[in-house]
Design a binder for these strands. Sequence first.
DNA 1: CCTTGAGGTGAACGTTTGTGCAGAAGTGAT
DNA 2: ATCACTTCTGCACAAACGTTCACCTCAAGG
Lengths: 328, 328
Amino acid sequence: MNKRDDLAHKAATMYYVQEQTMDAVAKEFDVSRATVSRLLKYARDTGLVRITVADAPSERNELGGRLEKNFGIHAQVVPVRGSSSPIGQMEQVSRVAASALDGMMEPGTVLGMAWGSTVTEMSRHLVPRKVPDSVVVQLNGAGNARRSGIPYTGAILNSVAEAFGSQIVHFPVPAFFDYADTKQAMWRERSIRSVLHLQSQVDVAVFGVGALNGPVPSHVYSSGYLDERDFDVLSKEGVVGDICTVLLREDGTWQDIEMNRRASGPTPVELSRVRRRLCVVSGPHRAGALLGALRARAVTDLVVDSLTAKILLDKTAAARTLQPRGHE
Amino acid sequence: MNKRDDLAHKAATMYYVQEQTMDAVAKEFDVSRATVSRLLKYARDTGLVRITVADAPSERNELGGRLEKNFGIHAQVVPVRGSSSPIGQMEQVSRVAASALDGMMEPGTVLGMAWGSTVTEMSRHLVPRKVPDSVVVQLNGAGNARRSGIPYTGAILNSVAEAFGSQIVHFPVPAFFDYADTKQAMWRERSIRSVLHLQSQVDVAVFGVGALNGPVPSHVYSSGYLDERDFDVLSKEGVVGDICTVLLREDGTWQDIEMNRRASGPTPVELSRVRRRLCVVSGPHRAGALLGALRARAVTDLVVDSLTAKILLDKTAAARTLQPRGHE
DNA sequence: CCTTGAGGTGAACGTTTGTGCAGAAGTGAT
DNA sequence: ATCACTTCTGCACAAACGTTCACCTCAAGG
């Protein structure tokens, strides 16, 4: 409907630009103030009204600053009250991430997206804004059906693409192959190669990190792609989590993990050809995996809750103190 | 001070991006909620937080649409409750104008500014935003001292330039010369010529319209630049007002008005070389002068209150009905 | 014709937010 | 140290706001 947009636009102008009260706007339109409140919410949600916060002035000596120094990344630490629920915390983080991503999109951007609970939550907080000639491409193979609260991968891409008005390119392969040979075979297929080629042109990549252990093991590990034996191997190998379905250890190594030969996502090396790599992390149980991701240089931009950030920094400080000539 | 910016930035992120309540933010910082409220106001005022409303979707069949059709301009009509005071109305209009101007500034823009009560009010509602390589140049000669509430012209330019981070170029001549000869002489001066040259490169011009008659005659007419005899002549000539100190009639003519040979501002013809010409008008007594300005094709973008817009359209409708082959 | 359900509205209520005021804390000159 | 001055803060209250709920309207389908 278009009349609604029109009303919302006028209401937004009166309220946000002219700084009238909702009451005044309501009288102007001859509706109730409640309706105006709803119109304004609508205007914000649809991107008719846009509220942006200037980029962080490179946070001083705080957590964020230390992260930036230690890892050479741009970090945004989301303060999180210990009181609020993990879900609430994740929502806070993902809102900030959505805003950060919004700031990275410009005409012609190719956006690479992993899928996961964090990224999903982020996609729900994007405010629509058309970005001409943008493309959204899926980075790693998909889960199949709706599972553990994560909608079908396609739906995630869909909602992101809708927000930015982008084209969608899917990546129709499983998250993990059962046989490395199959992967190799698929990688030779023309249809897959074209996606891989597009992936190599990604300007902005967005992903979370999965944690192998933790309250709820990341769905990568509970979706039937890996069996008992696999888990045993992972534990012995010292794997703590993954990014884009590529498994890694806390020290950032991943190359020699056999199972990665069956994984569908880009390795940190491939990822590092992407100019901006936005990593979104919420929850202390992911600190280890995040540390691995940072050490693997997979991240240029980080959004993380303050609790996890603190744990992360403690870990690195400990590592330095204990092994000044590190041989961990 | 910088600590304040920092706090304000964090508060703004928590409030506007994470959508926390002020209470939550206050607890995080361990200050009172009132302080957070003030921090947020500060963040908005300094441009740390930016709230923008999408451009009008070319207002349908409303007043704005009719203005656009009739005069081939982009018009924005500011709804104005008959109840509010003329001062309040002007504030509403100037807020919208400030927002419109903000939308026109881009790196390298040369902004030409007239001075007047409307423009002054507008300058007070600009939210700071640095525009690289922008320049603000004064379009017409200045009043000398503080007068009828209008600060010294320099102060207006100053605040605008401060908001955009622009360079300032003054135009050190009187609004009206006493002798046309003097003007001609001055126009040969190198210092003046350089300003004139810059004026010819203006990308965006901003000006109001002055009304000859009305509750408070525009300050152009009460600042001692024109004497009794001048006024008599103006009345006989059918002059209704001015833009940029160039006098004009309601039918848009101005060329043959002798006094304009002594005026310092750019004529409509000169003005029309500027790509975007933003005219800001508040108050029904200016409808006549505005009509003249529109007919002189001096305007590409108009911000006007709804009351004045209506009068304006009535005038044009009347003119058409009465003189289908117009000889007014 | 009635039924049913989606989408929208205003009244009322509880929450959230802005602001005048009085006092605290900082600043700089004497 | 004292004073005069400005700037900042929290309190308390009034204003503005978001949301629930009951109700209305309209349109599709029986």
